[in-house]
């Protein structure tokens, strides 16, 4: 694998995470439990889509400049997507959506913090801009997880169910492969495994405040960030997201 190939894969991983999660969050539009949450969810989705434009824009550039961020978002098939599975699982109830957001935000904020020191200036610049937004995402999702975990009996039960469902998707964010090894060597990005300790400390503290129990099993689903095996859900998401571009090829929107 060349340095360019690895770099491009890395950028797709970053951009596909924000693209797919941003899409999921945007599905809530107009259906949130309270007006403030409608605003916050739209705002989160908007930030994530903005970050996607930057990551996939850079991916296109690194690949030689013939593809735009839109080409990458709307014209690749599921097997070319490199997001972690956590980002593509369906929203479920509001509790699952916010738990997924928290589990991702916690990783995202640590990852962006490291990327701000990337040897590639473009990566560092995107990370710097995104980290401001993600700091707010994390604050909000953590507060909501605590509020709902330590709320009523029902809200606690639902948050525990959400955590039990999502926990097997957490491990994938920390798996390393040859792409990561290449990025570490180039000083572009950290080894994913090296983020785990900080992540566990953060997540245990918040989930403790939320009176929730982290499942004992460390089993981790995988296949999203390598593209080897996505969930069945991604294909459905893409049929919607990519429909106009696919149905009317070449049109300018």
């Amino acid at each position: 694998m060349t340095r360019e190939d690895a770099f491009s894969q890395f950028l797709l991983r970053m951009g596909d995470n924000t693209l797919v999660l941003g899409h999921r969050v945007s599905e809530w539009c107009g259906h949130a439990p309270v007006l403030e949450e409608d605003i916050a969810l739209a705002n989160t989705a908007l930030d994530l889509i903005g970050q996607t434009q930057m990551w996939l824009g850079l991916a296109g550039e690194v690949q030689g400049g013939s593809k735009t961020a839109d080409d990458l978002a709307f014209l690749r098939d599921a097997w070319d997507f490199r997001n972690v599975l956590l980002c593509e699982v369906p929203n479920g109830d509001f509790g699952r959506t916010l738990m997924r957001q928290f589990l991702f935000d916690a990783w995202h904020s640590i990852q962006l913090g490291r990327l701000m020191k990337s040897s590639d200036e473009r990566v560092a610049a995107i990370a710097e801009k995104a980290s401001k937004e993600v700091a707010y995402h994390l604050e909000r999702s953590a507060d909501t997880v605590v509020g709902l975990g330590d709320g009523t009996e029902e809200s606690r039960r639902r948050m525990q169910e959400a955590l039990d469902y999502l926990w097997p998707y957490v491990g994938e964010m920390f798996q390393s492969d040859e792409v990561d090894a290449e990025m570490v060597k180039a000083g572009i990005a950290p080894d994913p495994a090296s983020l785990r300790e900080e992540y566990d400390a953060l997540v245990s503290r918040i989930l403790g405040d939320a009176t929730l129990t982290i499942p004992e099993s460390s089993f981790a689903h995988k296949g999203g960030r390598t593209g080897a095996m996505h969930t069945e859900h991604l294909g459905h998401l893409l049929t919607q997201m990519q429909w106009l571009q696919r149905a009317y090829p070449g049109a300018k929107w």
């Binding site: 693209l19 899409h23 945007s26 599905e27 539009c29 107009g30 007006l35 403030e36 409608d38 605003i39 739209a42 705002n43 989705a45 908007l46 889509i49 903005g50 996607t52 434009q53 996939l56 961020a69 839109d70 978002a73 709307f74 919607q240 997201m241 429909w243 106009l244 571009q245 049109a251 929107w253």
Partner: peptide, 25 residues
């Protein structure tokens, strides 16, 4: 929103709908 044809259009539409909810507030 989930079928917006480009990332920019999706972002603009999200921003607009977020504004509307803010107006409601």
């Amino acid at each position: 929103i989930t079928r917006a044809p480009t990332l920019e259009r999706k972002a603009i539409l999200l921003a607009k709908v977020q504004d509307e909810a803010g107006h409601g507030l």
